[in-house]
Structures are given as structure tokens and as C-alpha cells.
Design a protein around this nucleic acid. Structure first.
Length: 913
RNA sequence: GGGCGUAUAGCUCAGUGGGAGAGCAGCUGCCUUACAAGCAGCGGGUCACAGGUUCAAUCCCUGUUGCGCCCACCA
């Protein structure tokens, strides 16, 4: 291994090796139990962002873990055509060239999109590979692949034949500049200042007027009713009467509606314009009101308006309406108000809600199955809090509008007959009407919502509607891992579609991860300037390479840019962050901290290699111990016991999706147990020659390191493979760490040794603390250490003197009896776990420093005594708390009191000096 | 407006009905033959606020406040 860990060099080495080994590929014929994850397909033309980095990390972690653990692991990758997003990008491109899709025509436009897809489509796949994703790339799918398109048609036709797909009118958000329908995702709503106009509508019978409030007076030209709440006393008598609509002169009814009018808002009476407001539209549906469209697709007043309004812009018309009302004395008042009109992301113009014919899915019957699947526990949602959200959505599910007025996507397989109005829905392209056989048919222009095809993803990717061996082997999948933000868009749809078409759930478990956000908890976005690009963290990015607007926040914190951290460090960081409920506020300093950890691992491996040159491996995966038990030293046994415990913890953590516990546990074990203590402990026996236990210690060191690498591999695949390949191993070893067996270690039962080493560590720490606080130079050896202990403790320490001598820098360890200890003069004193430590001060320790330290120690012990005494003097505690806890407190008190006496005596003695 | 989440060290975050933890940052010493991206030591917290339950609350319950997210809506 090189002297320093260079993540970029390490990470360049292994991906092709893994690919060539064919170990990412899943075997349909395998007898192994399958473990399958379907990738949440990213936008085909997208680029890797932190959300992707997170799911790649977690899913690769799960897949590598299960693959090592003997499952037939399939991680099926792919991309989504992402209708709107992709089409918008290509249209922007066209706009730069001074043209648009209408000029090009549908066919030519689609050609352009495919070209764009072919050019940009590989980017994100390449970036996922750079993260180490062990997907089965031979099975890569794209939602507009031929096979998946067949699945989409099949699903559509089946649902249509079952009567679950239908057409109906619905309000859509229309962009009058780009002349297209927008999806919710393309409409931004931000609050702005507006006005609320109160208009008087005279009653037709001349008995007065009713006042309505509106933020859009121009729509009054299309009013077909005024609605009031049936319980609103002010208007009770007016219900059923007619209003004579000013300017237009039309007579419209005053109706009672329980849903829309709120007596506390405005005047309590609402003008109803079913053709230009989503709420009014629904109110109109409830009361069978006429829809009069007065604003056209160009946002200008149309032929349904009075002559002088026709052709006027909607905002000019607004002024005219107000002026007309004022002139007629019908303008009651104007109030300032806040409102949030929808604005087109693309043109910035306020969208016009208009009614249009759309395709819908009646999702209720499907939802019923999907609800039952989760209720029964057949599919488990993790973390469980999301089940509530899921249930709420599913129980209140609304018809799913699946048509989109786009060109890029799965064109709806419906053909309209020009002669008989019949609609032909077919798996094959229709050339004639299925009712009258007329050849005069044209296909529906609209395409399907992107989520329609992604809803089929868990089985369309395996070959459905064909009955393929893949489908048989890998459906249902075991885990679906994704962000909670697409719980409704995607997860719920997959559950519905899976239960409906496959008659079984698409996955056993759903793990919903948190959202990666900026330091303030905001979503990362280019305009907010709070982007952290995973690739920048992997490769590093100098300040000059960072866009000052997109990365403003990053540059504020790190004015020089970021150093290269590598994919492994990023993965480890994200795994640790993944515990959280909702927000991951990524801190770059933490990534650096985990890179330091990997550097530590690297150097531990270098240490091992340097000390294994004369070691021969006999078997790669010894069941049980790496060497005969009688050859193992105290610390060998200790670390082997700990290793077994840690491996058990890893298993349990991963089973529960507690990635943080898994990663944190290994971090602590490798750094603070293996590196800080085990390696330090064994140095002396490795440097000592000859040593009869050398081979056993070498075997243990290698075993602990190699097993740690196997445990770490799912999280940090590159560095672990790199180190592993450098380690000596037996003939029977696999070619790659990624196919080595996942450690499932039985506890070797060395719990006594763990207790001994715990005591040893506590003692050494205490001696080091005395040295540190009394400013004994690290280079100075303590000539004599005097220990006083009971027989049990003494037995634990006695054989381990050499460790204390080396790690606490003590020349001689001597056990003395308490009687003798009491007569000693001029010693620094401490008590740890019942063992008394005395260090002669002479020529070593400054008297004042030691007195100060001792006083601090005394104060601490006194506080402890006070705390425990207070508890024990509480009669209720003694009476009601569990007896073993009471006893434990009593034992503590006794120990503290002994300790106090020892320290007091020592201080008294020092003060007399 | 409805729902959900969250509040712990200077920062980023774990955690638990029985004396509060990590990493980073800070301070003091160390180039101790794997690692200065390191080693040893130290300091730092009314666990948001107010009530309640309990022998015991940072943890459970109620309320308040701050922050964040989702859904709906603003006539």
C-alpha cells in the first residue's frame, strides 16, 4: 500500500475489476434466495445530485450486504423519460435556435428529444458507477424502452376495459405565452400583494343587492351563480333568488353551497365562475352550473363577452370591469389582500385555469388493495410514521389525471373516429374504428403522466406482461428505498399497480430516507445558491471552479473550495446521516472527518502488512478462532470477543435500516478499539523476538482487520477492496472482497478477558490523565507505579503489567498492601474501579499541580457522594424503586466513600509537605 | 387553515424513564519506528420554555414559542 491514502487513486482501480468479474449480475437460475431492489429511476438526462448520492449509497449498501450474505442480489438500474422535465430542456434548446416544437412538428420534435436523450442519457449512469453502484447493468431499463412501452399499453388497455380509465373535464393550468398546459410541478405559487374588490350584484326582483368579493373582477363576465353558505343568516332569504349580472345583463341564481362559501371570509357570498377557477369549477359540477368561458387560450377576452370587451387582454378587461362598476355605483369597496397566483416557471406569466377534457384513472378500487397490503403488514413502511401519511392519502384518494399535453412520453393508445365519435383503445396501433370500421381515425395527442409508467416499474422491468423467469424469480422485490417526497407520486402508485396487475405487492419493505438539505434546512436549489454537488465532494473543487451563484453558501463556508474526499468518504457520511427523520443538513466538515477515518483504516492496514511479512495464511475463513485458544493472548481474546459483538451489532442495525448505528459502530471499533488499543497492545509482542505467541497474534490481527473490511465493505467498497487485495490470503479465498462471505460470528465467550482489558484500559487512562494534568513530559518514564487492589482486580491486572508499562510509560509496576500504602509519603493518588494508584512524586511531578488535581478529584467524588446520598435518603426511592437499583446505589456510595478517604488522606499528606 | 416533524456542547448530529454522548472547532502538551489527515490530556450543556404523570423526566403527557416540511386555500 502507498504511504498515504489517496481516495481518487484507490477508487479508480476497482470498478472495472468488479464489472469484469460479472459479480453485479443476478442469476435467474440461482437456487439462492433473491434479494431485489428496483432503483428509483432518475431522469434520463439528469445529473447526479445529493439525493441521488444518498439513494445510491443506501441501496448499494443493502445490495452489497445481502450479496455477501448469500442472497441472489439484484439491483435493477434504469432511467425515467421524465416527460415534462426533458421536454422543457429540449424546448429551451430550440428557443435558443430561434424555433419551437410547433414549427418543427411532433415527429421532428421527438427525433430531437431522442437525440438529446442519447447524448445526455449516459451521464447519470456514469456518475452512479463512480459512486460504486453495483447494479446489474445488463438489465438496465428505460421507461420508454420497447418492452416497457408494451407494459404501459397493456396496463392502460386493461384499466380501460375494466372501466377504470375514463375521460372527463378538469381544470388545467394554461400558460398563455407558451400555449401549453402546465403540470403542478411547473407552476410556482408565491404570495404577492393583491386587491380584493367588493362588487354589488343587484337582485333581479329589485329588492336590493348582494355583495361579492373577488381578486379577479374580469371573470365576472363568466359568472353563472352566486353561492352562499346555507347557515349564513345574512343571506338565508336570498337563496333561490336571481341576480341580474351587471355589464352582461344575464340573470344568475343565488345558490346554497356548504363547501365553498365561508361566512367569515370576504362578504360571505362568492361569485361562481366555473370556467375560470378550480373551486368554482367544482362548485359548478355540484350544482350543474353552466360553464361560460370568457377568456381564451391567448388570455384575451373572447366572443362570449360583450362586444367592447372582446379581444381585450384580461388585465385591461379587469380595469374596464372596475370602471364600469364604479360608474354604475356598484363598487362597494377595495381592500388590500395577499394572494398567490400560479405563475408559469417557463414564461413567468400568471397561468389561466381553464377546463379541458382529460383522461383519468379511478384509483379507488386499486387503493383499497394497496391499503390492505400495508394494513396487514404484507408491506412494511419504515420509518413507521409514514404509514399515517400513506393512509391519509390513500383513504382520501382522488381520481388520477393521467393525460399530459406534452409530446415526450407514452402517447395514449386511444383513437378517435372521425365518423361515429367512438373511441378505440387498443394494444396495437388502430387503423380503423372498432365500432364502424371507418378508416378515418386519429390517435389521441396527449401522452401519459410519467408516473403511470414508473408505477409499473417493479414488474415492467422484469418482462411483464410476459410471464418471464425473471418475473417469477424476482417479483415481489424485497426492498424499495427512496425519498419520502415521492411517497404519493411513486410508492403509492407502485403499490396500487402491483396489487392490481400482479395480485401481489411490489415489495416487502419500503424504506423512506430523509431529504438532503442545506445548513438552514432548505431544499437545495440553484437559485438559492445552496447547492452541494456530490461530484465536487468526490473529486474536490477549487473556488475558481465553483459557480459563485449556485454555490454561494458553500463558498461562504469554504472560500477556497473543497478538497477531494472520495466516494467512500461521501458514502460513509451519507450512511451515518441517514438515521434522521426528515432533514439531512449536510456538513462538509463531517465528510472530512470520515475521510480521516478511512485514512486511519488505511494506516492500520499498513501496520498489519508490515508485521505480516513472515506470516502464512492457512485458511481464509476459519470457523471460529484464528489460532488455537491456548496460543491467544489476553488482548487477542479481548479483540476477538469484541469483533464478534460488533459483527452482531452490524447485522442487527442493517436489518433495521439503522445505517448510522452500523457505520458509527464500525467507526468506533476500528479507530478506538482496534487502532487505539489492540494495535498498541500487540506492538510489544510483535517487536519482541522471539515470541512464542507471535503467530497467534499475527493471525488475530489479520483476522480482525480482514473481518472489519468485510463488515465495512458495503459502505465503503473501494478502499476496503483495495486493502483486502493487498492482504495475504489463502488459496480458497474468493477473487474479490465483494463476494466474500458476510461475517456472522459466534461469540467465542471471552467475556472475562473483556472485563480485564476494560480494567486495564481504565487504569492506563487514569495514569495518562495524571501525567497530562501534572505536566509530566511524554518522554519521561515513571520509575515506579504502586497499585493496591482486591484479589479479583489484582488477578486481572497482574499478568498484564507489561501493557501498563508500555502504554502508560512506567518502568516498574508493584503491588502493595493497603497497610503499606497508608504509610507512603509524597505520592500522586487516584482510584479507578476500586484499584488505588500511587505514583511517587519525587523528581517527577510538580507538587502544586498534583495538589490542584487532587482537589478537583476530591470535589468530584464529594459531588458523587452527595448525589447518591440524596437519592438513598429519599424514602420513596428506597421503597418503590427496583431493589437491584437501590442496591447498586448503596454499592456506589460505599465505593465513593472509600475513594474519598484515600484521596483525602493523600491530600492531607501532600499539604503537609 | 389542516397535518406532520424538529428543538441536546460554539458547529453538525447521535442517544436514553435511573448521574449527558460522538465528530469537528477550542485549549495544553507531543514529529512515541501505521497514521501530524496523527497521538495523549483538558475545558465546554438549567437536553427550547411552562405545567403534569412518576420514587425518579432530557426522554412519557398537555400547552407555549422558534424553525422546517407537506396538503389545501386565499371569493
Amino acid at each position: 500500500l502507498d504511504e498515504t491514502y489517496d481516495p481518487l487513486q484507490v477508487e479508480d482501480r476497482w470498478y472495472p475489476f468488479w464489472l469484469n468479474g460479472g459479480w453485479f449480475a443476478a442469476d435467474t437460475q440461482s437456487k439462492k434466495e433473491p434479494y431485489t431492489i428496483m432503483i428509483p429511476p432518475p431522469n434520463v438526462t439528469g445529473s447526479l445530485h445529493m439525493g441521488h448520492a444518498l439513494f445510491v449509497t443506501l441501496e448499494d449498501l443493502l445490495i452489497r450486504w445481502k450479496r455477501m450474505d448469500g442472497f441472489e442480489a439484484l439491483w435493477l438500474p434504469g432511467t425515467d423519460h421524465a416527460g415534462i422535465a426533458t421536454q422543457v430542456m429540449v424546448e429551451r434548446q430550440l428557443a435558443k435556435d430561434g424555433t419551437n416544437r410547433h414549427e418543427l412538428g411532433r415527429e421532428e420534435f421527438l427525433k430531437r428529444v431522442w437525440t438529446w436523450k442519447d447524448e445526455k442519457g449516459g451521464t447519470i449512469i456514469g456518475q452512479m458507477k463512480r459512486m460504486g453502484a453495483s447494479c446489474d447493468w445488463d438489465r438496465e431499463r428505460f421507461t420508454m424502452d420497447e418492452g416497457l412501452s408494451v407494459a404501459v399499453r397493456e396496463a392502460f388497455v386493461q384499466l380501460f376495459e375494466q372501466g377504470l380509465i375514463y375521460r372527463a373535464e378538469r381544470m388545467v393550468d394554461w400558460d398563455p405565452i407558451t400555449m401549453t398546459v402546465l403540470s403542478d410541478l411547473e407552476v410556482d405559487r408565491e404570495e404577492e400583494d393583491g386587491k380584493l374588490w367588493f362588487l354589488k350584484y343587484p337582485l333581479a326582483d329589485g329588492s336590493g343587492h348582494i355583495i361579492v368579493g373577488t381578486t379577479r373582477p374580469e371573470t365576472m363576465l363568466g359568472d353563472t351563480a352566486v353561492a352562499v353558505h346555507p347557515d349564513d343568516e345574512r343571506y338565508k332569504d336570498m337563496i333561490g333568488k336571481m341576480v341580474k349580472l351587471p355589464i352582461v345583463g344575464r340573470e344568475i341564481p343565488i345558490i346554497a353551497d356548504k363547501i365553498l362559501p365561508d361566512p367569515k371570509k370576504g362578504s360571505g357570498a362568492v361569485k361562481i365562475t366555473p370556467a375560470h377557477d378550480p373551486n368554482d369549477f367544482e362548485c359548478g359540477e355540484r350544482h350543474s352550473l353552466e360553464r361560460i368561458q370568457v377568456i381564451g387560450f391567448d388570455a384575451k377576452m373572447n366572443e362570449n363577452c360583450p362586444q367592447n370587451y372582446q379581444g381585450k387582454d384580461r388585465y385591461d378587461a379587469r380595469k374596464m370591469v372596475i370602471a364600469d362598476f364604479e360608474k354604475a355605483g356598484l363598487l362597494d369597496k377595495i381592500e388590500p389582500t395577499k394572494f398567490a397566483p400560479g405563475r408559469s416557471q417557463r414564461s413567468g406569466v400568471v397561468v389561466e385555469p381553464l377546463p379541458m377534457l382529460q383522461w383519468f384513472v379511478n384509483t379507488e378500487p386499486m387503493a383499497k388493495k394497496a391499503i390492505a397490503a400495508v394494513d396487514s403488514g404484507r408491506t412494511k413502511i419504515v420509518p413507521e410514521v409514514w404509514k399515517k401519511t400513506y393512509d391519509h392519502f390513500m383513504h382520501n384518494i382522488r381520481p388520477w389525471c393521467i393525460s399530459r399535453q406534452l409530446w415526450w412520453g407514452h402517447r395514449i393508445p386511444a383513437w378517435y373516429c372521425g365518423d361515429c365519435d367512438h373511441i378505440t383503445v387498443s394494444r396495437e396501433d388502430a387503423t380503423q374504428c372498432s365500432a364502424c370500421a371507418s378508416k378515418n381515425v386519429r390517435q389521441e395527442e396527449d401522452v401519459l403522466d410519467t408516473w403511470f409508467s414508473s408505477g409499473l416499474w417493479p414488474f415492467s422491468t422484469l418482462g411483464w406482461p410476459e410471464k418471464t423467469p425473471d418475473l417469477d424469480k424476482f417479483y415481489p422485490t424485497q426492498c424499495l428505498e427512496t425519498g419520502f417526497d415521492i411517497l404519493f407520486f411513486w410508492v403509492a402508485r407502485m403499490l396500487m399497480m402491483g396489487c392490481w396487475f400482479m395480485d401481489d405487492v411490489p415489495f416487502d419493505e419500503v424504506f423512506l430516507h430523509a431529504m438532503v438539505r442545506d445548513a438552514d434546512g432548505h431544499k437545495m436549489s440553484k437559485t438559492k445558491g445552496n447547492i452541494i454537488d456530490p461530484l465536487h465532494l468526490i473529486y474536490g473543487a477549487k473556488a475558481a471552479d465553483l459557480d459563485p451563484e449556485m454555490h454561494a453558501e458553500l463558498l461562504k463556508q469554504h472560500p477556497d473550495g473543497v478538497e477531494s474526499q472520495g466516494a467512500d468518504a461521501l458514502r460513509f457520511t451519507l450512511a451515518i446521516y441517514a438515521a434522521q427523520g426528515r432533514d439531512i443538513k449536510l456538513d462538509i466538515d463531517r465528510v472530512e472527518g470520515y475521510r480521516a477515518f478511512l485514512n486511519k483504516l488505511w494506516n492500520a492496514a499498513r501496520f498489519a502488512l508490515m508485521n505480516l511479512t513472515d506470516f502464512e495464511v492457512t485458511s481464509s475463513y476459519p470457523d471460529g478462532l484464528p489460532a488455537p485458544e491456548e496460543d491467544l493472548s489476553l488482548v487477542d481474546k479481548w479483540i476477538l470477543q469484541r469483533l464478534a459483538e460488533v459483527s452482531k451489532d452490524c447485522q442487527a442495525s442493517l436489518e433495521a435500516y439503522k445505517f448510522n448505528e452500523y457505520a458509527q459502530g464500525l467507526y468506533h471499533f476500528v479507530w478506538h478499539e482496534v487502532c487505539d488499543w489492540y494495535i498498541e497492545f500487540i506492538k510489544m509482542s510483535l517487536y519482541e523476538d522471539p515470541n512464542p505467541r507471535r503467530t497467534a497474534t499475527q493471525a488475530t490481527l489479520l483476522h480482525v482487520l480482514e473481518t472489519s473490511l468485510r463488515l465495512l465493505h458495503p459502505a465503503v467498497p473501494f478502499i476496503t477492496e483495495d486493502i483486502w487485495q493487498a492482504l495475504p490470503r489463502g488459496q480458497d479465498a474468493p477473487e474479490s472482497l465483494m463476494i466474500a462471505p458476510w461475517p456472522r460470528l459466534e461469540s467465542p465467550g471471552f467475556t472475562e478477558e473483556v472485563a480485564s482489558v476494560d480494567l486495564l484500559v481504565a487504569l492506563i487512562n487514569q495514569i495518562r490523565a495524571i501525567r497530562g494534568e501534572t505536566r509530566v513530559k511524554p518522554s519521561v518514564q515513571i520509575p515506579r507505579l504502586l497499585l493496591t487492589a482486591g484479589p479479583a482486580e489484582r488477578q486481572r491486572i497482574e499478568g498484564a503489567n507489561a501493557y501498563i508499562q508500555r502504554l502508560a510509560r512506567v518502568e516498574e509496576v508493584v503491588f502493595i498492601e493497603r497497610a503499606e500504602a497508608d504509610t507512603l509519603q509524597g505520592v500522586a493518588t487516584a482510584v479507578v474501579k476500586g484499584v488505588e494508584i500511587r505514583i511517587p512524586l519525587k523528581g517527577l511531578i510538580d507538587l502544586d499541580e498534583e495538589r490542584g488535581r487532587l482537589k478537583k478529584e476530591l470535589a468530584r467524588t464529594q459531588a458523587d457522594i452527595e448525589f447518591v446520598s440524596k437519592k438513598l435518603s429519599n424514602e420513596k426511592f428506597v421503597a418503590k424503586a427496583p431493589p437491584h437499583l437501590v442496591q447498586a446505589e448503596r454499592d456506589k456510595l460505599a465505593a465513593y466513600e472509600t475513594e474519598l478517604r484515600t484521596l483525602e488522606a493523600s491530600l492531607l499528606e501532600l499539604e503537609s509537605m
